[in-house]
Design a protein around this nucleic acid. Structure first.
Lengths: 343, 343
DNA sequence: TATATAAATGGGAACGTTCCCATTTTAGCA
DNA sequence: TGCTAAAATGGGAACGTTCCCATTTATATA
């Protein structure tokens, strides 16, 4: 039957006003005598008072909660990013709500709505279907994760996907490969297509004719990778090397190769992108382009904190806003799945 | 300069009272004329009103937010569980806050505090250091995930770890293995030690003498698994098979075997537990004991929802509480990392 | 000691809902 | 048509803070 104690109960117990208690609790320490602070803290202790963040939020219009919206939490890439976000945000006292859109448009929008209703302080999102304008309409400070184009109004943290692709292709080229397949994810539907553009640019530069039958487009999962490779192997002249848009696809391809009795890297080289945990667990271990996942998350949090320090309302509307881009460079993680082609 | 519209603005616009607007918005549809509902909805539309969940929470003492506390989000096991939780909870309109304790006592406690202050409606936790009593002290409905003992006051959802271990050992035994190593995680410090107990019980039943040098205890990561196997291989008579407490450890062991030039499964069999994504990506693919990760999360959510339907305050204190245990059975996922021993 | 200034404290309004209770309107029925 | 019951609606208080502003108390200065 006993109610949770409120700030007023504490005030009564300590013989001060609720205002003073509030001052002590918010650590707004300024202008409170040390002795009074003591008295209040004792009262808090005695009554087992816990600050009511909800009431506080109502008054201050700040919840200290941010939302992290991701397409697929089961791709290990994202948990790694999330950890970077969390480590940074928690240090500033923010809680992180995960939103797992699962590639679904409706869910993604539903989460934006949730962020609005719950007055979350900010949004961190790898947008899948949602547009620049839809994000702007939330009026919530937002930072994007991923190298997407078409979002002129937001800070973006990601990795240099174009460069990563070049890196991978150069590696294969230097090994002697000339016929290189590309396995793309079907979701990669944004304007930009950095990987594809990078691929065609590379071929052009090296004066290798573009062969569209070498470009596969499949669902972003293991099976997608597997199917793509099967199809590539069935060509009259199959590629001697394959670049997959991410490690999940690459691992699927690797499995398909094993199943087909193709030896990797002897008869086929495979490169992935991301460097997720499983990449080093395959046999042979996967050569891949490493992205600094944790760092990406951390930097995104950093941008977000910049927005949060200012008046939330202002950050989007008032001052002329020059979006920042922070694209991390990627590095070649050479392991066992690549080798010179057999002649 | 324009404020966000409130329920009162909507009321004015629609020419009704705020109470009526509230009724419409909460979908408490009872006792509102259809025509009035229309009018209110139009007003909402016109003004671009969004419900303020914070204010609502203050009044109703419900936030519709739950916390999911996990030791390590980068172990793919947990995201899979989390997805089950999320799918179920979101359907009921709850948001899920992830808390990543990273095996750290302080962080785990800090998260409990956060849950209290933010008045989260419930907690779902795989407790690492926190005790039964500490959880009880939060006065927040809580359900545990994992097969931990020592928590008499809570519903628990997990898997039958003891049985899983038996399954794995039986598999190895049936293949002909008699000298079987065990790689345990160092964190497994709870009373119970289901895996260890299961292991010793099994040996006893099969009348195999216990050899403590076959039992390794290492950090719960890839490297732990690697080191453990190296040490096992350095024994004068190494085991012919190894059971690892989870797939991460098993994969580490697998890598160590490769590095040592030991062929798996010809010269050494390895079994893991969990069946995470990467388990099927290794070469040879890992034989493991599959746990229904998604289902575990879903069932945990189900238990939680039971608590949430009742008066939150009551569920813990009043009625005599009989904790429920839902331990899922595990299944042998036979892949390529196990085979009869060479004689 | 009186006076000006700074520091410490307190009272009340406000944040935007929901809920209780009272009042008005509508429907049902003789 | 009049009366009763039910349905629909509205006004105000309450949830637990924080913030504004006013007041009291302590400190420094002349």
């Amino acid at each position: 039957m006993k109610r949770r104690p409120t700030i007023i109960d504490v005030a009564k117990q300590a013989g001060v006003s609720k205002t003073t208690v509030s001052r002590v609790i918010t650590g707004d320490g300024a202008n409170v005598r040390e002795e009074t602070v003591q008295r209040v803290q004792e009262a808090v202790e005695e009554l087992g008072y816990t600050h009511n963040a909800v009431a506080s939020s109502l008054r201050t219009a700040r919840t200290n909660i941010i939302m992290l919206s991701l397409p697929d939490i089961t791709n290990p890439f994202w948990p790694a990013v999330a950890r970077g976000v969390q480590d940074r945000m928690e240090k500033e006292g923010y809680a992180v709500v995960f939103a797992n859109s699962d590639w679904d448009t409706e869910r993604e929008k539903m989460f934006l709505e949730m962020a609005r209703r719950n007055r979350f302080d900010a949004i961190l999102i790898n947008p899948v279907h949602v547009s620049n304008d839809e994000l702007k309409a939330t009026h919530i400070p937002t930072v994007l994760i991923g190298s997407h184009e078409g979002f002129p109004d937001f800070d973006i943290v990601g990795s240099n996907t174009y460069g990563a692709t070049q890196l991978a292709l150069t590696h294969l080229y230097d090994l002697g490969h000339r016929r290189i397949g590309l396995i793309r994810g079907r979701r990669e539907s944004r304007p930009g297509h950095s990987r594809l553009r990078s691929y065609t640019d590379f071929l052009q530069e090296k004066q290798i004719p573009l062969d569209n039958s070498l470009i596969m487009r499949v669902p972003f999962d293991e099976n997608g990778g597997r199917q793509a490779l099967q199809q590539l192997l069935s060509l009259s002249t199959p590629p001697t090397a394959v670049l997959a848009a991410n490690d999940i696809l690459a691992i699927g391809a690797l499995q398909a190769a094993h199943e087909a009795g193709i030896s990797v890297p002897d008869h086929l080289s495979i490169v992935g992108i991301d460097d997720i945990f499983a990449a080093s667990a395959t046999t042979p271990p996967l050569t891949t382009i490493a992205k600094p996942q944790y760092e990406i998350g951390k930097q995104a949090a950093e941008f977000l904190l910049d927005h949060l320090e200012k008046e939330p309302a202002l950050s989007l509307s008032k001052r002329p806003f020059t979006p920042r881009r922070h694209l991390f460079d990627c590095t070649l993680q050479q392991r066992g799945s690549t080798a010179p082609p057999i002649n």
